[in-house]
Design a protein around this nucleic acid. Sequence first.
DNA 1: GCAAGCCTGACC
DNA 2: GGTCAGGCTTGC
Length: 303
Amino acid sequence: MPELPEVETVLRGLKKRVLGRRISRVEVSHPQVIVGSPDDFTESVRGREIRRGTRKGKAIALELGPLPDHRAQARRSGRSGQSGGDSDGRRYLLVRLGMTGQFTVNPSGAPVEPHTHVRFALDDGREEIRYRDPRRFGRLRCCTAEELDEIFAELGPDAPEISGQQFMAALRGRRGAIKSWLMNQRVLAGLGNIYADEALFAARIHPLASAGGISAKAAGRLMRAVKNVLRRAVELQGTSFSDYIDIEGRPGNFLPRLKVYQRTDEPCRRCKRPIQRLVIGGRSSHFCPQCQRVESRESKVES
DNA sequence: GCAAGCCTGACC
DNA sequence: GGTCAGGCTTGC
């Protein structure tokens, strides 16, 4: 399941392999994974050079340079206006991997795996980027700088970057479960089910604890736990639970480090009591009932 | 039947 | 506006 560490790993791989290369051909074999018209998508992306790669939360944006002169004359009046947004002809290839989305770079002749929905030929066409997604929850779209800004503005701060103040302010007044809060991308971008469960275990907070009700102390622990678990998972190139692989087709190495996720009935690594499973906000949550308690007497974030 | 991210819509 | 349920999707 691609969450921030997996997405970061894919992005790093893409930066290594495709920056500076031109997308010479686009083939969409399953239009459902494209936001908007697949023909528009193909036309907008084809012929552009991949210039930069960025990320916010679980969303990847590849910056595409302007179309070559023969396809569209981008306005060139020197470099006066610096970031003219749309006017300089830049576009962004925005990617959300959803649940089972995979990006790989392959020789064009390599056998095409089932559920490969989009192929981007690079340069002379000897290699291509493939987007594969058995469950088709992922989405690709081509957008302008302005559209990308709007989409990124909907997301909360990228989890590794959030400040203590932002974290506290975002918790204030929230009545729902802390587990759901951690997974709310508008509040904090990057966590999914795996790392939300792991961070709560590390911070010793019960997943059902009310977000706005946790103490300042617990909130501090939680923020540190979130950043820690993400940093370690990035170092190990993510977690491969079912489908996740990186750009070279390699799985992540964080799986053996999981403390609670999908370990229902297995002994807690801290106290040996069995890990429990609970459905919160329609998602399964794994926690240790001994190590993770709803707080009793620490002071609240705000009252 | 369960897993999941993300979007939509219902409800307060 | 927050909060939650439902739907999408397919392999195990």
